[in-house]
Simulated assay, not measured.
Amino acid sequence: MYANCNRIKDSLRVFNQLPKRDAISWNSIIAGCVQNSMFDEGLIFFRQMLMGKIKPVPVSFSSTIPACAHLTTLHLGKQLHGYIIRGGFEDNVFVASSLVDMYAKCGNIRIARWIFDKMEQHDMVSWTAMIMGYALHGHAPDAFSSFEQMEGEAVKPNYVSFMAVLTACSHAGLVDKAWKYFNSMTKTYDIAPGIEHYAAVADVLGRAGRLEEAYQFISSMHIEPTGSVWLTLLAACRVHKNVELAEKVAEKIFTVDPENMGAYVLCSNVYSAAKRWKDAVKDKKRNV
């Protein structure tokens, strides 16, 4: 309960006071740690559970494998995969989906796809893991075809799967596809875009040099833009040497995030590229 409420310290305190720990308590504390980004601690508890002669169940692996994915510890993930095969858990859809996600995040797309293809049924987690893996590692066409195949199998895309396919558009610099998926998200699936979706579209517009369009897009967001979204555009202004727009964007950033050091550095670089040395030095001093 405490772990699900993000009160992981209370959860740990209760766990440590237990006179006897069964499989339920071990799996709960492991899942709680991983869900609260305490990945190393989750792996330590998993090892302690094994040392305590508590036999893992499918949920043990579906909770532990994401820790390996986030830490990109492929060697440990492979050890867990071996344990899963020996225990006969590889047919569990949640365990298999976690393995797909782990291998994809660690960059081993071939193994991720092999596990994915062996699955009898694919859930949203496995589809999204595969699409994001393709997106992050330069396989945009595979990401798009997987997304369309997912739709064809009547699996409804969610918030995260749209984040994955927009990431593919961003990395590949495909503006028209980014607009297509962004509009589909809101009009076809009635999913309200979040900061990550806006940032991805702003990024692809910036990479394409469509800076004014990106500026108008961010300005018209239905939620308040964060400094990180504006920072995406500021980075594009530096690449395309647009000093005037960079100054406007920097103002927006410092209004919502006055301590954003990355923005000061980028501004200094923009001025340096334009040979406006005094402004560059002034920004560097503000950054100190």
Rank of each mutant, 00 (worst) to 15 (best):
E151R: 15
V160H: 04
S184R: 15
S146H: 04
C169R: 00
T188E: 15
Y159E: 10
A168H: 02
F147Y: 07
S126K: 02
M163W: 06
Y181P: 11
A135E: 01
M130F: 08
V125H: 07
F147C: 03
W179S: 02
L166Q: 01
S146F: 10
F182D: 05
H171L: 08
S170L: 05
Y134T: 08
A143W: 03
A129E: 01
T128W: 11
M163R: 10
A164R: 01
V125I: 15
G138C: 12
I131E: 00
S146D: 05
D176R: 12
C169S: 07
H171F: 10
A168T: 06
S161D: 05
V165P: 00
F144P: 07
G173T: 02
G152Q: 12
A129P: 04
A129W: 01
E151W: 03
D142N: 13
A129R: 00
A135K: 01
M185Y: 05
E153P: 00
S126W: 02
A129L: 05
K156L: 13
N158W: 06
Y181Q: 09
V125M: 11
V160C: 05
K180F: 11
L174D: 03
N183H: 12
V160I: 14
E153V: 09
Y134D: 07
T128Y: 09
I131F: 03
A164S: 14
M185H: 07
G173D: 00
E151I: 15
T167D: 08
M130P: 04
F144L: 11
T128V: 12
S146G: 05
V125E: 02
T186A: 14
F147M: 11
G152N: 14
Y159V: 07
S161L: 04
V160R: 04
K187P: 00
L136I: 12
P157Q: 02
S184Q: 15
